[in-house]
């Protein structure tokens, strides 16, 4: 029989920082709640950062995954439109430029994290990060 852990009945949880009320420290040291973050907070923090820069990742495709409660999202990243696929839980929130948090299943995000979310759709432009070239 497959090994059963006491927690196996619950769905895999998201990182704690997406829970409504989580305290987020911006690059300038200011503290904000995760639900209060704005696009400018990410942009300004990346400007201060010596290692990270903001990239835009456009959602090109969203499809179901064999993993329960998961989806595979294909992004075109940056000006070179590099194709990147990520498998995430449907409630995983992404930050859409000018809009805010969005997920494949806003209802689940709200239910599990209390974070209000829009529906992530093809064409949405999400904030992503790349490492600044260090070489």
């Amino acid at each position: 029989p497959p090994p059963a852990s006491p927690l196996s009945a619950t769905c895999p949880s998201l990182p704690p920082y997406f829970m409504k009320g989580s305290i987020i420290q911006l690059a300038d040291g200011k503290l904000k709640r995760v639900e209060d973050l704005k696009t400018e907070d990410f942009i300004q923090s990346a400007e201060i950062s010596s290692e990270l820069k903001i990239d835009s990742s456009t959602v090109e495709r969203i499809e179901g995954s064999q993993t329960p409660n998961s989806a595979i999202i294909q992004f075109a990243v940056g000006e070179h439109k590099a194709q990147v696929s990520v498998e995430v839980l449907v409630e995983y929130p992404f930050f859409v430029f000018g809009q805010g948090w969005s997920s494949c299943s806003p209802d689940r995000t709200t239910q599990l994290l209390e974070l209000s979310c829009a529906k992530l759709s093809v064409g949405d432009v999400c904030i992503s990060l790349t490492l600044k070239n260090s070489k």
């Binding site: 704690p16 911006l26 690059a27 973050l37 923090s45 990239d55 990742s57 990147v84 904030i127 790349t130």
Partner: peptide, 25 residues
């Protein structure tokens, strides 16, 4: 009510997925 003394503070960049390691051309 007793407030917790230490509230976890998370860095802003933990909220954003690292999708592209670098732009190479």
């Amino acid at each position: 009510n007793v407030e917790p003394r230490s509230v976890p503070v998370f860095p802003w960049h933990s909220l954003v997925p690292f999708l592209a390691p670098s732009q190479s051309d």
